[in-house]
């Protein structure tokens, strides 16, 4: 979280990005972290049984 804030401020200063863009990027990062959380709770299992032949 701290990294996100400091990084956001640095980007505003060095790249002259408006504060709103920084907010949008921060929010998107947070959402993807949140959404990706489910991958750490569950394991993706690819079912091989029906894949090879189309029947």
């Amino acid at each position: 979280m701290g990294g996100l804030y400091v990084g956001g401020e640095t980007v505003q200063i060095t790249m002259k990005l408006p504060v709103n863009i920084v907010l949008i990027i921060q929010a998107l990062i947070l959402f993807f972290v949140l959404g990706g959380d489910i991958l750490s709770r569950y394991r993706l299992a690819f079912d091989r049984q029906e894949a090879p032949s189309g029947g």
């Binding site: 408006p18 504060v19 709103n20 863009i21 920084v22 907010l23 949008i24 990027i25 921060q26 929010a27 998107l28 947070l30 959402f31 949140l34 959404g35 959380d37 489910i38």
Partner: peptide
Amino acid sequence: YATITLRADQIVSGLTLTILGTGISGF
């Protein structure tokens, strides 16, 4: 989607939504 389908924390998702809304509306 985040809270019902992905079962993420509702408070965190809501706060993030506030940041996103502030940013997008300002932009």
